[in-house]
Each structure stands twice: as structure tokens, then as C-alpha cells.
């Protein structure tokens, strides 16, 4: 099998240029879809029969939670590629996923709390999803903390890659154990309402938001990854050529 495409793909100058060209193709559709999804979710979708308009928080909460998990998966996959093939650009991608994922974990947590206020009467209950999201935030912070504690950039890349892979094995376990934990400590029904029953007019804006957030993540990641590539390649000639322009 011919692997030259793989090596060309993994070459920093190639990816740096490619990422620059691709960014607008993700960023603008992301902006359009998110605005359209927000309009559809906030104005067009019918109110939920139980939660009224309160359920509309789902249009910002669920995509944020999705992005937070997706960023972790990407981070671990990129970290694994970087570790196995000693690929600098993969580590650059992994490094750029962490802050984005951490921020959207915060978004998912805060919007979940704002949703909880009318639903449960309080901002925080130990709901399994929120709890798992909180643990995810700690995992992100641990990753970022480890990365910043190691001075040598190559060592930081490789050590945090191991942590990301260990973490991604743990994420589903945390998820299910938290659900199990919640099911045995059945809180005396704090939920005022059932789950929203989703119909198509409600679902369509949500799907648009999911696609929009996915594109947004890719765009953000590409911009950050370009910077990370530059940081890792400061000594190379191509960097001086690119920067001099």
C-alpha cells in the first residue's frame, strides 16, 4: 500500500496551509446554521406541552454538551495518532481541542443549571447528565493542567496524549456509573416535568444546531491548530517563509 499520501497529509506545512484554506468553509456555514437553528428553536418550534417555552434551552444546552464530548473524542483520537506515528500535527490538533472542549463543557453545565431552575426549582441537583458533565470538566482541566506543568513541549504533547487516551476509556465508564449511582439513590421525585416529547418541528432546529456546532468546533480547532503547528515548528524554514509574507 502506498503511504505517501499519509506522510504528505501529516507534513506540517501542508496541513498549515490546508487548515487555513478550509477554515472559512467551516466557519461561515457554522455561523449560518447556528443563527438559523437558534431562530428556528426560539421562534418557530412549538412550545413543549409540559414545559412550555422553558424547554427551548435544549437548543443551546444539547449542542454544547455534544460539542464537549465530541472535542474529547477528537482530542483522544488525535493524541493516539500523535503517539503511535509520532506526528507533530496530531499533537497540535489534540492541544487545540482541550480549551474549546472545556469552554463548551462550561456552557453545557451553565445552561443545564439554568434549565434546572424552572424544572427542579433549584440550579443544581445531582442529575446524572450534569454530574457526568462536571466530571468531564475536571478531566479537561486535568489535561490542561498537565500540559502546562511540563515545560518541554514534546514531552508535554506525549504525556498529555497518554492522559487523553486513559480519559477517553474512562468517560463512558463515568457516564454509566453515574447513571447507576443515580438510579439507586432515587431522589424523591424532584423532576416537575417529564422529558420533552420531541416532534419533528422541534427536532429540526435541534439537528441544525448539532451540525452548526460540529462545524463551529472544526473551524475553531483549525484556527487553534495552525497556531499550535507554528509553535511546534518554530525552527523550520517553511515557518520563516510563511511568516515573512
Amino acid at each position: 500500500m502506498d503511504w505517501t499520501w499519509f506522510h504528505r497529509f501529516g507534513s506540517p506545512p501542508h496541513l498549515y496551509g490546508l487548515a487555513g484554506k478550509l477554515t472559512p468553509w467551516f466557519a461561515w456555514p457554522a455561523a449560518l446554521l447556528i443563527l438559523a437553528g437558534l431562530y428556528g428553536g426560539l421562534a418557530l418550534a412549538p412550545p413543549d406541552y409540559q414545559q412550555g417555552d422553558g424547554f427551548r434551552i435544549i437548543y443551546v444546552h444539547a449542542p454544547s454538551a455534544w460539542l464537549s464530548l465530541m472535542a474529547y473524542t477528537w482530542m483522544a483520537a488525535a493524541a493516539a495518532i500523535g503517539l503511535v506515528w509520532r506526528m507533530k500535527v496530531a499533537h497540535a490538533v489534540a492541544a487545540s481541542c482541550a480549551p474549546i472542549g472545556a469552554w463548551f463543557t462550561v456552557a453545557a453545565l451553565c445552561t443545564g443549571m439554568l434549565w434546572g431552575k424552572p424544572m427542579w426549582g433549584t440550579y443544581w441537583v445531582w442529575d446524572p447528565r450534569l454530574t457526568a458533565e462536571l466530571v468531564l470538566l475536571f478531566l479537561y482541566l486535568g489535561y490542561i493542567g498537565l500540559r502546562s506543568a511540563i515545560e518541554d513541549p514534546q514531552r508535554a504533547d506525549r504525556a498529555s496524549a497518554v492522559l487523553a487516551i486513559v480519559g477517553v476509556v474512562n468517560v463512558p465508564i463515568v457516564r454509566y456509573s453515574v447513571e447507576w449511582w443515580n438510579s439507586i439513590h432515587q431522589a424523591p421525585s424532584v423532576m416537575k416535568f417529564g422529558k420533552p416529547s420531541i416532534s419533528w418541528p422541534m427536532l429540526t432546529p435541534l439537528l441544525i444546531m448539532f451540525v452548526g456546532f460540529t462545524l463551529l468546533f472544526v473551524a475553531l480547532m483549525l484556527v487553534r491548530a495552525r497556531g499550535e503547528i507554528l509553535r511546534r515548528e518554530r525552527q523550520s524554514r517553511w515557518v520563516s517563509e510563511v511568516v515573512a509574507q
Partner: peptide, 9 residues
């Protein structure tokens, strides 16, 4: 609840 959540995101 809704507007702070949207604004925050």
C-alpha cells in the same frame, strides 16, 4: 432562564 442560557452560550 431561556435568555440567559442563550446569551451565555
Amino acid at each position: 432562564s431561556v435568555w440567559p442560557a442563550v446569551a451565555l452560550t
